[in-house]
Amino acid sequence: MIWALKRVGISLVLVWIVATIVFLAIHLVPGDPAELLLSQGGVAADPGAVAELRGQLGLDRPILVQYGQSMAGLLRGDLGRSMQDDSPVADAITRRLPRTLELIGAGAILALLVGMPAGTLAAIRRGGVFDRTASWLAALALAVPVFVTGTLLVLVFAQSLRWVAAGGYVALAEDPARHLSLLAMPSLTIGLGLAAVVFRMARAAVLDVAGRDYVRTARAKGLRPRHILTRHVVRNALMPVVTVVALHLGSLLGGTVLVEYVFNWPGLSGLLVDAVSARDYPSVVGIILVISVLFVGLNLLVDLLYGVLDPRVRHG
């Protein structure tokens, strides 16, 4: 238990550090931030606009005051106001965050449900047809960037075959069937890359564990193969798989941004891309902060899961 609390504590500290860095980012860049934001392609900005922006962003106050206010605002849930339409950033985020989460969740579940069993099977029948085919497919899936997969899927299934719409969104409550059909391709796109990663790791881990001494002991006890597979092999192979998923959370979240863009899924990324193009700093900061906190949270979850799986970690 102390171990779990320690992990949660560390995560909270990390969140604070992340917020501080995001806050500092604008101040670490050489030059006046407001000027930077307003200059377009080398053309200097109008001094009046710059001054106004500085006031708007609160850059004219001493840095510690700015920091204090930002942190206080964060605790309140206030992420500032968008430079594009002056609406509260937090509102737009709250509206869109669940949709992003839905996509991540669907993709991750798909990846685990496909990757883990496939990897185990490939390891059991190593060198066989399934193993070689699946390994090749996995290598391909890892090589194709997520936005390429998405775009190609749209080309094939939406444009040529016309099985599904190219993109868009309908709330679950409104039209469940259509919602799910629109969810299919984006989650498949996200899940594919992660599934390949899980597959590879599961295969390697199962092969490694199967050769370990304690599996030999299990056989020496006369246990049934299925029992050995589940209780001893897969159980121990889960741990490296969980570790590798943790390592890929970053690209998972990044990939979500791209996939939402390709499929017009109205999650956080649409907001983000527009904001970056418009150099809408408060919006960008707010969204990145939320996603980073999400990232730290997911890492924490994976960490705790690993602790549940491996008692050696719990006992220090």
């Binding site: 102390i2 171990w3 320690k6 504590g9 006992h315 220090g316």
Partner: peptide
């Protein structure tokens, strides 16, 4: 640094 929190 984690001396006060060490479980070992």
């Amino acid at each position: 640094l984690w001396r006060p929190f060490s479980t070992g």
